[in-house]
Design a protein around this nucleic acid. Structure first.
Lengths: 371, 371
DNA sequence: CTGAAAGCGCTTACAG
DNA sequence: CTGAAAGCGCTTACAG
């Protein structure tokens, strides 16, 4: 049991009104209503309320009136399989969701918004239930991999404002969403690497139907084709949950002949594994191999530190909250439909110009190699 | 603007009652009241409510009755200086608070509890205000470094259940709190290192008045004294925010003669810095120097991977929520007062038996050294 | 076991 | 600009 003394009696509006010699309606208007009240009395009532320590009940407030400005409640819907946390014994959040959630919480805090995490196997009916019982005033859905257009329709039907995070529909750009511009990031990255002389590159992403993963591949396709190096580049999908499979895919990449001179691993743990396997093979990074990632939690601490794009996921979470807040009139209205946050490239130490030798180590060096 | 169709009219209790041919009071009792209702009608009303899609209003629920079981709102109070997040432009959460917050969110989600982050320079008045306006039903305070006994008194006065995380008062063990048993962790660690032959050890902690830091030093004092090696051990406090100072302190530790054979750096970024400086000096880890940390986010990815105690901060957050939930009758009552979560030691690769040479490298080896 | 009423703490038409 | 009343959607005494 935690400490709990007798709760102090709360000050009600009635008492404030009485102290001010006014009716409740008057006091209410003076304090928060839009009804005309003379500045003098308004000021007087404010003062009295403050002195008495009056705090309006949020429940009464939202029950009366037609949903006046009160505290807003935001539901953050997590999709089912995020893994079990052995610490809490409950659900755990993935490395991708974690920073988004932090951005959500922080921005919500600044805007006085309550947040509730909810977990529904069935998003559609769940959200409608939430809406019906005052359980939430809006919904934000981070990284809902399996989200379908039907789910979005149900979301619309619920009447609740909503926004999708890191999930979008190319077929319907009007769906409110905030995503990282990973396609743009990949395009920029391929240009950067190409400029540094790289021709043989590899992309390693997650399997699954995620729209974000699709973006990586779309950007990759565009960029490598644009630079005329599509034939010497390879894009691999692997399940990061299956460590053995992931490590085998990495080994395969490293043992290829000719070996890629640059590998882009979206997942930073995979990038770390590339560093480890490269070290085991005597391949030096970045001299013989450049490695880039799209995460930035452990990147500064690997050997060498991993260069990469920071997806700014906490910013995405924060922007999601702002989109909702704009609907509520809490902040100025900004973007509509699909909104894109550009990733930010951070150069650490794992990227260097392509090695001039482009064949297996046994070959001689050809300094004039152009492929 | 996000999508927002005309909100569907909600089903009210009155309509359920009418459909069932009962009064509102009857229907209410059948659905949720403790008042006697025949099983037959209860079942019938339930069915009708479900068919109609009835969802009780949480606002009405908590406004009427005397605070019946409805959704609970938990305020998480963050202390002021947690740093500014350049991503969100708002406050950011420290590496210590982040996992606690995640544990809180996750466990709260499972128990259907809303969470709101609040940030108050003045904890006491803030909490009282929260309580008065229905802004929260309980408060959890993670890592409130500057928390005083006066603040705790104010917390008690608010009438809200509360729990402190990672902060305790030895002078008053009845204050509800959940902390990591860092003193116990240090004692265990010193025993482990002593058994591995280490005699010259160093502890690196944060400056400041934190009760947790005090625990580290208490455990260190106890353990090194108990093993009779207090004279050859050193405990250093440094501000981790001041990188230059931190790095200088680490350099000082590494350049000492004789050099410590084991360094315990609570902060893992500091431990990483030790690895980096050791590598620069040609000191091999773990052969010539063992390094241990008390965090575990980047630890698996450094070179070599850092051994260390996992403080299980997300578990601490989850337990904090459970303590509150027990107050609300949501879960069975458990611990009272100060509750301790033992850290878990994870051996990676940065710890080895002490090197037999105990003098500067220029000396000869004395295999019989007993210090 | 059941009906009809009062009331939770506010806000907002509706009259003056 | 101001008073007095109605009502938000529920629950809980209070009578039968």
């Amino acid at each position: 049991m935690t400490a709990r003394p007798p709760a102090r009696r709360r000050v009600r509006l009635k008492e404030v009104a009485k102290a001010a010699g006014l009716s409740e309606g008057q006091a209410s208007a003076a304090l928060s209503g839009y009804r005309g009240v003379s500045d003098a009395t308004r000021e007087r009532v404010r003062k009295i309320a403050a002195d008495l320590g009056y705090q309006p009940s949020e429940h009464a407030r939202s029950l009366s009136g037609r949903g006046r400005r009160t505290t807003h409640r935001l539901a953050v819907v997590l999709n089912a399989p995020t893994g079990v946390d052995r610490e809490t014994g409950g659900i755990a959040v993935t490395p991708f969701v974690s920073p988004m959630l932090e951005g959500i919480m922080l921005r919500a805090s600044e805007l006085d918004i309550d947040v509730r995490l909810v977990r529904w196997p069935d998003l559609a009916s769940g959200v409608i239930e939430l809406a019906a019982r005052d359980g939430a005033d809006a919904v934000v859905v981070p990284s809902f991999t399996g989200l379908s257009v039907d789910d979005v329709a149900a979301l619309r039907d619920s009447g609740l404002p909503f926004v999708l995070l890191n999930r979008h529909f190319v077929t319907d750009p009007t769906v409110p969403t905030v995503i990282a511009d990973v396609a743009g990031g990949i395009v920029e990255l391929v240009s950067r690497l190409t400029a540094a002389g790289h021709r043989r590159m590899a992309l390693l992403t997650e399997v699954g139907e995620s729209s974000v993963v699709a973006d990586y591949h779309r950007g990759w396709q565009e960029a490598t084709t644009g630079h005329g190096i599509a034939d010497s580049c390879v894009a691999t999908r692997v399940s990061h949950a299956d460590r053995a499979a992931r490590d085998a895919a990495i080994a395969d990449l490293l043992d290829r002949e000719p070996r890629p001179t640059a590998i882009v691993a979206v997942d930073e743990a995979a990038a770390h594994q590339i560093l480890a396997q490269a070290a085991a093979r005597g391949i030096t990074v970045p001299d013989q191999l450049s490695v880039v990632t799209f995460e930035s939690m452990i990147a500064p601490y690997t050997t060498p530190p991993l260069s990469g794009h920071d997806l700014r996921l906490s910013r995405i979470g924060a922007r999601g909250v702002e989109r909702i807040a704009a609907d509520w009139g809490l902040v100025p209205t900004g973007a509509e439909g699909t909104e894109t946050i550009p990733p930010r490239y951070v150069d650490r130490d794992s990227v260097a110009p392509a090695p001039t030798l482009h064949s297996p180590p046994t070959d001689t060096i050809d300094p004039n190699s152009k492929d």
